[in-house]
Structure formats: structure tokens, C-alpha cells
Design a protein around this nucleic acid. Structure first.
Lengths: 219, 219, 219, 219
DNA sequence: GATGAATGAGCTTTCATTCAT
DNA sequence: GATGAATGAAAGCTCATTCAT
């Protein structure tokens, strides 16, 4: 688009034009609504109200409801994918440490961003948005699998892990994180026990690292 | 709801096969539709068509869409909860074996029933159906936690498992099963890699049992 | 059952299913509305009310407003085009008589059908419906021109008409009919003088035949 | 509406020009839009864009969309009505020549002004604007009829025309001009054959004068 | 004067629900 | 019991209009 003149505003304006801020605010409101009620169950009136605008305003920034939905997913995902990318390029730690770091990084992301609602949203709505599936599988799942699978393979090569079935082990490693995210947004709001990601991850790390270790005597 | 009007034929037959099967057929069709598109995204026309009846017929058996939805969830869950109950009362195996059996039982259920779509359905729709949350948390989650938690505690008591944080470990144990169910219905229809529950569970059992074992020398 | 006062019509039914009649009734109502207010200016509520149904019913028979509009034009046009076709194949009269008959046939059509609103509708809406232009030009205008042009050429060949510029003369011949149709639907409802098609056509026939004649003295 | 305030800049500033021209530019843009898509089908965004201003600017010059529409019609019509008035007061020619001159004058107007879109616009929109009908009937149609009717009556009185039915003959005389105007804006943009007003009028003049003549041999 | 972000009434469209058949 | 034409409330979307800048 074009470079918009900076709006230096003094105080005392009844409302301001916030062309630059609005889209993000709307996406955030939409993320919450879609996360809570799903795509079809979300009314644009609700999104608008939560964003502090009226329905018509949504259409200044998004072509239609579907466009807004896709914007919400991709805009939330993309910057976070970039953050994950940076992890990938970090210095090579021993595999067990790398695995532990990765899981602790997830805890940080989980507690500091709104990203955690996306798995629920995607899982719920792929049935209605096939392109979403393609995007998510390719950009998130495949990358995540490659990342964890790489560490596991390295751990085997370097003698830290026993000869495990990598593809299946990936699931054992990451599943608790996924379940925790779903849990937070589906059951915690309705009074179920709360899952503490920090404790959970530390417990899980120990189980996994012991479980993958070479010494079979434990069994 | 079900009006208990006596409808005996003059030949004494109590049940007309067709009449008797309709509700189940409709629930099954509804389960598939709701699973694919969610509650709001499902049209009763589609449910009716898939059930081989017309829209009006749905209202002969269910008060409304919401009633149908709840019937679908509870009717699918209840008999399967009963099956799980029977597991609970089985003869006491050593904890590691009990855990392995439980997970293999899950594989069987997963591959032989349509139950596996329910986690997705529940996770997607609890935002719109708070009672559903209550029901599911109480009837499924709490029971499941109690079941796995009981085995874990027994394993600790009997010296098979080290002193682990039971609550968090439960998640590590069951998360892969949950993820597999969600995966099957959300990503596999859209071309992602397939998860094989048998291999996955065997791999997971070994990781978990090794991970929970007493001998720490492996680390 | 509850004691519900049934509001029966005179035939004893509250409403009847009239799947076979409805589409035609709706098209007729739509024809009038579109004719009066144009496509964009017509509200489906008005069409529905005039057809004696509710808005939703329109969607049982037509995909959307545009589909209804096209159905109105083509359904009204097609059968009348067929009628015109039959004229084409009639026995060959002398050209002057054929011209007079054609114009009198138009009067009959004008006074006995609702066809006369279509020129106004088409002229008003071709800007929004390019396919409509194509259809109308090809099916109505070109055929009409061919018909009148054929008679004129025959008249010249057979010595009844002088050597006139056929293409332009066609306009002189048919224009009053077109103007009368537009007039009826645009100005007469607002109090302008009324045009009497019978007198008008007889006057026009005489002017045209005299105007085209070789030896006007013969008249 | 049009306040003809003289704005001769005392210092000869040219920038006032722009301000002065805005309303006319907007009316012109609106004329084209309304002509193409009708009143309801025209968006003010489109008018603004075509006029090279923004939507808000339209409201500096016109109260609302309807006001703009009426301004467009009246501002285009009034000056042209004045031109027609001047024809009326011209020296009295013999009726046949007057008729021919009148029709040739129409050709000139048709080819040099944008007036020709107005019949289409008025015919299309009178259903939505009853006052427009009144205005047009009174200011354009009645005057036009009086003008042509006057010539015809004079022609009869002076022995140039036979005893024709004046009211109906008026239609035969003017209809081709009306049809040509409608044609130009409705069908020519969509690829139909083009009507050449010059040839058409010359052909029509000859038909009409022969058709009306007492002693056609005179021609 | 000019702008264009924001509004909200009004329209099209959908679909759960009803009910005469 | 079963149907499906009909309904109407609710939602998505458009666009004339406003108003702070």
C-alpha cells in the first residue's frame, strides 16, 4: 500500500482514525471469537463489538468473514513460525539438551503469546477450510516434525538415544504440548483441572529422556 | 423426548425394525456431519440426506438440532464408557502390564468404533455447549485420569515405577492417543502423513515404561 | 393434540402446496416489480409479497435475485418468440399486406400479454447484465430485423415498394411500436396521455405504406 | 439549484476555476454512471471516482444521491430545452421543411451533446421517481408533442399534408429518434449493429413526407 | 474545501423449524 | 410415520451518509 502520513494526534479527540491499528485489533478480536465459538458459530457482530468497532468496519479491512478467518490464522502463525525458525539455526546442543530446550521454549511461547489457541482452531475448522489444512500441515506440522525428528536422529547417531522408531517417537515427544494447548482453551474455561505447563514439561522431559536412553536395564 | 406410547402391532410385535433403527441411523449420520463441519457448520439437510431421510423426519426423533447434537455425543459415549468401566474391574495386573493393556485396548477401540471422532467434536464445540464440557469432564476425563492415575500410583507403591508426579505423568501417558484421534479426523483427510496407532502405541509403551522405571542409571 | 383453531381457507386448507404453480406466480410478480423499479430497485420482500409468499420461498425456486431476473426475462420471452416464429412461416402475402398484418399482430400481442414490459426492462438493465444484451440482441432484435427486412425486400422485388434503404426503413416501421410499449410502462402510470395502439397502428400503417409506395396515387 | 454567482476573480486567479467546475464534473460523471447502471445500481463511490474526487466531496455539492440524480436530469435538460424553444420561435417555414429541419436539428443535438442518454435514464427511473415523470412529461414530452403537432396541423391547414390523425402521427414522426437514442446507450455498447442517425433521419424524412403528402407526386 | 474511516440501516441470503398433506 | 413446501429470524454483506481531521 502507500506510505501513510503519521498521525500525530493530540489528546482530546473523540475518536481517531487508526487505519494502521485497526486490522490487528480486529484480527485479535476475531482470533478470540473464532477460538471460542468456531468459524460458523462466530457472529461478525461479536467480533466487531470485541474489537470496538461496528460490523461495517470489518469490511474496510477484510473482504468477508472467510478472508478474516484466514488472515487471523496466517497472521498469527507466520511471525511465530519465524521464531521457531530461529531455534532451528541455533548452535547444536547435545540431543537430550536440545529436546529439553525445545520443550521449555514451547512453554515460554505458550505462556507469552496467544498462539496456543491455533491448534484448537485449526483442528476444529480444517473440515470447512481445506486450504487451511494444506497450509498448516506444510508450514507447521511438517516443520515441527522435521525439527524434532532431526534432534532424535542426531541423538541416535551420537549415541545418546537408543535405536527408536523416530516417526512414532515424535508423537510421544510433542503430544503433551498439543494436549495442553487444547486443554487450556477447551476445558479450563469450563472448570476442569488446570494443567501447569512448567511442571508438566519438566516431568515429561524426564520421562522422555529416560525413555529414550540407551540403558535398557531399567526394564 | 421419546414418547412411550404403546405401539404394539396386532401380531404382538413390539418393535418395528425400521422404526427402531431410524434414531441410530440419524445419530450416526449426524456424528459424521458434526465431526466434519462442526455443530454450526452442519446443516440438517445434510444430516438428513446422509441418513436417507428428509429433514422433517429428524424432528420425529429429536427436539431440535441441539438435542440431536447432545444425543450424538452421549449415545456414542455412554456404551463406550461402560466398556472402559469393565476394564477397571478386571483382575489386577502388575502396573506396567496394566498400562500396556490399557493402551492396547485403546487401539482396539480406536480401530473398531467411531468413537475417535468425539474428542475432536467435544474440543471444537465445548465453547458453544458448556453442559457438554461438564458432562465430558466428569464422565470421560475424570474417569480416564482416575484410571491411569490409579495404575501409576499402584506402580509406585509396588515398586515398578519411580516416584513420579502422577498428575502430570498421566498427560504424558495418554496424550499420544488423544493426538492420534484428532489427527485422524483433522489432518489425514487432507493428505497429511498417516499415524499408525499400533506401531505408535507399542513405541509409546516402551518409552513410557522405560521412562517411568526405577533404574536411573540410564540417564 | 392441542386445541388449536385451524385457520382454514375456504377450501378448508390453511395453505396449499403449489409447487407446480409457484414458480410462475413468482416470475409474474417479479416481472411486475422489476418492470416498475428495475433490478436493483426491487426488493425481494416486495416480489414475495406480490406473489403471496415470503422471502424465503423465493429461494426454493430460484438460486438468487439475479437468477430470478434472468428467469423472468427468458421465460417471458421464449414462448413469445415461438409465437413470432409461427408468423414467419405463414403463407406469403403481398408485402404491404404482410407489413400491415405484422403490425396488427403486434397490437394483439401488446394488448393480450405482459410482454410489453420487456423492452423497458431490457433497455434499463442491459448495463448491469451484459449476457442479457447478447441474448436479446440475438433472439429478439436480430430476428425482428430479419422479419421486417425480409418483407421490405420482398416488397421492393415485387414492385410494391420503391427502392428504399432497407436497414433504416426497418426502424421507421417498428419504432412506434417500441415507443408505445415504453410509453405504456413509463409514462402512462404517471398521468401522461395514453397511446391507443389500435389507432396508432392504423395511422402508422397508412403513413408507412404511402411512404414506401412506388406509385402513391394507387393508394 | 445552480447558483450562478459570478466568480470573476478580481486578481485573475485561475484556481477558482476548479472549484467552479466541480459540480459540473460530478454531474457529468453521475450522468454516465446513472445512464449505465441506473439510479439504484450506481454507487456513489463510482461516481466519485469517475469525477476524480472522493465520496465525501459529493456531499459538498449535493444533498444526497437523489438530489444528485435530479440535478443531473434537470441540469442536462434545461439548457437543451431552451435550445429547442429557440427553434419554435424561428421564422415559419413550410410544414414539410419545418419537419425536416426539426429532425435534422435532432441529429445535430444527438451527435454533439450527451443529451441522448436522458430518455433511457428517464424511462428506466420514472418508476422510482414520480416527480421525474411529472417534470419530464410536462417539460419535454408535452412541449415536443406541441411542437411537432403544431407543424403537422399547419401542414394540414396549408394543404401540404392530408387530413391525418395528428396525435398518432406525432408518434410515427418522432419514434425513430427516440429508438435511436435508446439503442445507442443500451445495445450498441454490447455489440449490436450501429444505427447511423444521419442516414436514418434522411430515410425517415422521405418516408414521412411521402406518407403525409396529399399529392405525393409532388415529391 | 476535501478527505476517507467509520457508521448503521437495509438488503440478500441461509437454514432451523413448522405443519398441512 | 414421513414428507417437503413454506416460513421467518438471524446472519452476512453493501453502501449512502456522516464527521473528525
Amino acid at each position: 500500500m502507500t506510505s501513510k502520513i503519521k498521525q500525530r494526534g493530540k489528546d482530546g479527540r473523540r475518536w481517531r482514525r487508526r487505519k494502521d491499528k485497526r486490522p490487528g485489533e480486529i484480527r485479535m478480536a476475531a482470533l478470540e471469537c473464532f477460538g471460542e465459538r468456531g468459524f460458523a458459530g462466530t457472529r461478525l457482530d461479536d467480533v466487531a463489538e470485541r474489537a470496538g468497532v461496528t460490523k461495517g468496519t470489518l469490511y474496510l479491512y477484510f473482504q468477508n468473514k472467510e478472508d478474516l478467518f484466514k488472515a487471523v490464522v496466517s497472521e498469527e502463525l507466520v511471525p511465530n513460525i519465524v521464531r521457531i525458525e530461529s531455534l532451528l539455526s541455533e548452535k547444536e546442543l547435545p540431543a537430550p539438551e536440545a529436546l529439553a530446550q525445545l520443550m521449555r521454549f514451547w512453554v515460554k511461547t505458550f505462556t507469552t503469546t496467544r498462539l496456543s489457541i491455533l491448534p484448537k482452531l485449526v483442528i476444529s475448522e480444517v473440515g470447512n477450510f481445506p486450504e487451511l489444512a494444506e497450509f498448516y500441515i506444510h508450514e507447521v506440522i511438517d516443520r515441527g516434525f522435521a525439527l524434532v525428528g532431526g534432534i532424535l536422529r542426531r541423538g541416535i547417531d551420537e549415541g545418546d538415544f537408543r535405536e527408536i522408531n523416530v516417526e512414532e517417537t515424535i508423537i510421544s515427544v510433542i503430544a503433551p504440548a498439543i494436549v495442553t494447548m487444547l486443554w487450556k482453551h477447551s476445558f479450563e474455561p469450563h472448570g476442569s483441572r488446570k494443567l501447569d505447563p512448567v511442571t508438566l514439561v519438566e516431568t515429561h522431559i524426564e520421562i522422555i529422556l529416560r525413555g529414550l536412553g540407551r540403558n535398557p536395564a531399567a526394564l
